[in-house]
């Protein structure tokens, strides 16, 4: 069951990190996390982002546009991340 907030469209940080760790390596984006801090490297360009506990839609949209993650994965992580765990 998706854990998005129906009112705000935001998604829990755990779900977002789970999707990012699962999907981005396949899109040639290096990603690692420590708590809510996520470090990306795409085309030799690093980006460090401290995510809030509830990640708003605009940030998900940014991840989609910049790194190529399908938006629906964030709302339905079971679509892409079955059997995976979030690294802490």
């Amino acid at each position: 069951m998706p854990d998005q907030s129906a009112e705000s469209g935001s998604v829990s940080v755990a779900s977002v990190i789970k999707v990012l760790l699962s999907v981005l390596p396949g899109l040639n984006v290096s990603v690692k996390n420590s708590g809510n801090r996520v470090t990306f490297v795409k085309d030799g360009k690093p980006e460090v982002i401290d995510l809030p506990d509830s990640v708003p839609r605009r940030m998900l949209h940014r991840f989609s546009g910049k790194y190529g993650v399908k938006m629906e994965y964030f709302y339905h992580p079971e679509m892409c991340c079955r059997g995976t765990t979030t690294k802490q």
Binding site: G9, S54, P56, M59
Partner: peptide, 15 residues
């Protein structure tokens, strides 16, 4: 952005 806030840099693309 809903119940949250989103900060977007203009001169540098960081958010």
């Amino acid at each position: 952005d809903g119940d949250n806030w989103f900060a977007q840099g203009l001169d540098i693309d960081y958010a």
